[in-house]
Design a protein around this nucleic acid. Sequence first.
DNA 1: AATGGAACCAACCGCCCACGA
DNA 2: GTCGTGGGCGGTTGGTTCCAT
Length: 306
Amino acid sequence: MKRRSATEGMRKGPWTPEEDAILFEHVRNNGARNWSLVSFLGLLPRTGKSCRLRWVNKLRPGLKKGRKFSPEEEQKVLDLQAQFGNKWATIAKYFPGRTDNDVKNYWSIHCKRLARARHDQRGPLTDISNQVANLETNALSVASPEELLASEEQEEAQGSNGKGNSDSGTSSTILDPQPDPNPILYNPIQNLPPQPAPFDPIFDLPPLPEIHYLQSTPRSVNLSQDQYRQSTQFFEGEPEVGSMDLGQTQIIDPNEQCLNYEHGLMDSGLDQFMDNVPSVLPPPTEFDDLDDILDSFEQPVLKSPY
DNA sequence: AATGGAACCAACCGCCCACGA
DNA sequence: GTCGTGGGCGGTTGGTTCCAT
């Protein structure tokens, strides 16, 4: 008898804003855990894994959206990869707002560029290979592209399964050359500027000293019957009917990190809500931390006209 | 304007581990 | 001790966008 697959009947592919809103609501109610509950309760035809991934990579507050890696971040990725190997989750902890997927994707592109540069170096150097070579020598004092590639090739030759064992010492013959002309080769981290304490990419938020959140989103507005009906439909997961103007949530943050929270919230689907709701702005409210902002959203936002 | 390749991004898959029954 | 399950992680793939020709 054929066993029913856990993923049978589950939806795959891109997430819709409606699904995002439902998932966000689940996290608000249950926290970022019990992912299987989402499908178990019939909230979404998605596997728990899929839900978790969506939250971690796209919905959770604090994510940097659509920003390429800066040169500083690129260098840090290179240095940290040299130290930790392909421990992307570990490396991502040094990049508030970045996910392991971000770092992993960046690195895979980086490897492709290296491979192409190396291939090109066997023939005439092209502009791109020169650029990559310059990038590597400037940004990476850890190892030359050749050393990195040789290291990777040796790992492959040794039958490495690629599961993050580059810190197992097998690559030391490559990265452990002669008397070190460049100490960073052995301990790349020590030459980095002081790093913030790694934070939990799931729940912990990066340190945000002396931050004031000014919240001016209407907590209480008067709606027409039609507006109220539409708004509550959204809450129940119906197709989007408007957008909640979280853009009116003014968040002042000297480190700009709170702006990321704002974007994270907006991108989570709440921005597609209450677009046509009249704004009656109460005096700005100060919050001490992000949790207070999130809590404020759990309070009634709408006044029933009934 | 059309096209092909590179870059980028989102999401799935499979493996592994921790934990509770 | 074992088994099942949930969750975490790294690898991979497929789709989309960008850009040079």
